[in-house]
């Protein structure tokens, strides 16, 4: 099929515009700080790099457009491959329109945070230990089912003196010798690193759930919840609600992503607060409270009995990622 040079030029021009459009979209997201909403931090560099590549190819297509417009001999790329420009302009329209779709959505639809609606569609993980403990084995290392009422004040008070005397991690509290810790934190191959982390955590006055170790910390606390009952915990996330929750209950949740927000999976911890109704769903909150347990949807999960709560702005990077160094140090 012999093409008119003008038509070929237009083809190249449209391609150049589309390619540059993708590159600009990436640059736009980087500039506005919104790339965090889409791509995990450790993958952002390679995405930025691809913007450069797209620019280069766009420039080449633009150059081809000019060349085929002025050079009447040129009749498209001669090659032995099966790439050909679409034959009719209807087909071209469809093809280029299809590529314009992500660009239009990218520029025109306002950015929003992933929140409760997505979390509800994916199902918030309130019992993260199920992720590490394989389903086939009957969770041999989780401490035996709760014997006394876990939230009883005596239980909580028993725990408290253990963390008061010590201020630094390396100083063992009088009544938790390494042997006692080993009893509290049994482990197997799957849970070894969680047990080690748990032993460190349990000796802190206040357990702060950091974004860097969000999943790992919640998993550890959930795995060895008996050891943590009554401890003070600090955590922030968005307010998430499900129908089966009580009036005073809500989830403090965050999405965990490993590469991009398509693989986001929501993790959360249940919180109980007397004035929970004053909190809007999807509002970001910082919560401090005492750890306890509760039964939700027929499984035992940890629950924070809220002492202090504050509304906060959503963080720049709303997602948390699995800590790939966890268990390696």
């Amino acid at each position: 099929m012999i093409r008119k040079p003008l038509a070929t030029a237009v083809h190249y021009l449209v391609r150049a515009i589309l390619l540059a459009g993708f590159a600009f979209l990436i640059v736009h997201l980087v500039r506005s700080g919104k790339l965090n909403l889409y791509i995990a931090e450790r993958m952002q560099f390679i995405v930025k790099l691809s913007a450069l590549g797209l620019y280069a190819v766009a420039a080449q297509q633009f150059y081809s457009a000019i060349r085929s417009f002025f050079d009447k001999e040129q009749s498209g790329p001669d090659c032995d491959c099966d790439h050909e420009m679409p034959e009719t302009w209807g087909k071209s329209l469809l093809l280029y329109g299809w590529f314009a779709l992500p660009l239009i959505i990218g520029y025109a639809v306002p950015d929003g945070l992933l929140g409760s609606s997505m979390a509800a569609a994916k199902g918030v993980q309130f019992a993260p230990q199920t992720v590490v403990v394989p389903k086939t084995s009957p969770a041999p290392n989780t401490p035996a089912p709760v014997v006394p009422a876990p939230l009883s004040p005596t239980n909580a008070e028993n725990e408290k003196p253990t963390d008061k005397p010590d201020t630094k991690e390396n100083k063992q509290p009088a009544d938790s010798t390494p042997e006692q810790l080993d009893v509290l934190f049994p482990y197997d191959n799957f849970t070894e690193s969680y047990a080690a982390y748990g032993k460190k955590l349990v000796q802190q006055d206040v357990i702060t759930v950091t974004p860097q170790r969000f999943i790992e910390t919640l998993t550890t606390i959930d795995l060895y919840r008996e050891a943590f009952i009554g401890k003070t915990i600090e955590i922030s996330g968005f307010v998430y609600r499900e129908k089966s929750m009580g009036q005073q209950q809500f989830g403090v949740s965050r999405f965990a992503i490993s590469c991009c927000s398509a693989d986001a999976s929501p993790y959360g911890v249940m919180a109980k607060f007397g004035h929970a109704e004053t909190l809007e769903t999807d509002a970001w909150v910082a919560v401090t409270g005492e750890l306890g347990t509760t039964r939700y949807n027929d499984i035992d999960i940890i629950q924070i009995n809220v002492r202090k709560i504050a509304k906060i702005d959503p963080p720049e990077d709303p997602y948390v990622s699995p800590d790939l160094d966890f268990g390696l140090e």
Binding site: F22, I26, L29, L35, L37, Y38, I39, M43, I46, V47, L49, S50, G53, L54, V57, P102, I105, G106, V109, P110, D111, G112, L114, G115, S117, M118, A121, C259, C260, S261, A262
Partner: peptide, 29 residues
């Protein structure tokens, strides 16, 4: 009418494309 659904769609849709672009580019190069 639920604009969050559209925003969710946008986030998932674009994130897959953005994430795959570098690898697609390396492949075609």
């Amino acid at each position: 009418f639920d604009s969050t659904k559209i925003q969710n769609f946008k986030i998932v849709f674009l994130s897959i494309i953005l994430e795959a672009l570098p690898f697609l580019l390396i492949g075609v190069i």
